[in-house]
């Protein structure tokens, strides 16, 4: 009896020391977060969608896209952003919030969770980078547009169900690289097919894609050159585009 009475406070003490209110860990520092899902949800999901798709920005949960780009491409874009496009730089060295290893964690997570072997069914994977792609021909591009895109995106007074991509304001906000990537992988999450499945029995080739992009770029009004295009495409020296207008004027 006495022993029990003595043990009771002891048990209570031990119980307290493992009580449910006992703090378990320290408040985590932002740089200490290494979990891909948390990183993605806090930094990327706003534009790329909750699970990497069905967002306003490009789809990342897309095996085809991930087959197209290298891990280094992903890393570079997250690190430095795409200047002149809505993709901001996330590396601390570029004024962003993420440490290098966190960017690596995001790249690894994207590859691990979403990259899958793609069955190309015999079709060749087009070149990703606009710098390495064949020179496009705008004239032929128009024909390609009529053939591959017009049914959904319309032309002239014909309005397609997906809405126009020849709108100058749209083109001002879509870099050539973005147009090329989208022309290749489509937006399957929103119903836009990839380069193999636009018309039955017809697969666009590298040249077709370059041509379409060249034609779309030619539809972009003068002075609407994206900053990203300016850096990759030196043929245009027009510098009065939106990129420069962003600067405060006196």
């Amino acid at each position: 009896m006495k022993a029990a009475a003595a043990a009771l406070p002891l048990i209570a003490l031990l119980g307290f020391n493992s009580g449910c209110g006992k703090p378990t860990g320290q408040a985590k520092q932002p740089e200490a977060v290494m979990d891909f899902h948390q990183l993605f949800s806090e930094n990327c999901s706003a534009c790329h969608g909750v699970s990497g798709q069905k967002g306003a920005g490009p789809r990342l949960n897309d095996p085809l896209y991930l087959a197209l780009v290298t891990k280094q491409d992903l890393y570079n874009v997250i690190e430095k952003g795409r200047p002149g496009t809505p993709m901001p730089a996330f590396a601390q060295s570029s004024g962003g919030p993420l440490a290098e290893k966190q960017i690596q964690a995001i790249v690894d997570g994207i590859e691990k969770d979403w990259a899958k072997p793609v069955n190309l069914q015999g079709a060749a994977l087009p070149v990703y980078s606009i710098a390495k792609a064949p020179q496009g021909d705008a004239k032929r591009g128009q024909a390609q547009y009529m053939r591959n895109c017009m049914m959904c995106h319309g032309f002239g007074s014909f309005k397609g169900m997906a809405g126009p991509i020849t709108d100058p304001n749209y083109l001002a906000l879509a870099s050539d690289q973005y147009l090329r990537t989208t022309a290749i992988v489509g937006r399957i999450d929103w119903g836009m097919p990839d380069w193999r499945h636009r018309i039955p029995g017809h697969v666009m080739n590298d040249q077709d894609i370059s041509d379409v992009v060249a034609w779309l770029a030619s539809q972009r009004p003068k002075g609407y050159m994206m900053a990203e295009n300016q850096s990759t495409n030196n043929s245009s020296s027009n510098r009065s585009g939106p990129g420069s207008e962003r600067e405060p004027k006196q």
């Binding site: 930094n43 969608g49 929103w190």
Partner: peptide
């Protein structure tokens, strides 16, 4: 950067 646009507010929107 952490709150996505709800999917139903993106459906049937034009590229612009």
């Amino acid at each position: 950067s952490g709150q996505s646009v709800p999917v139903d507010l993106l459906q049937h929107r034009t590229p612009l």
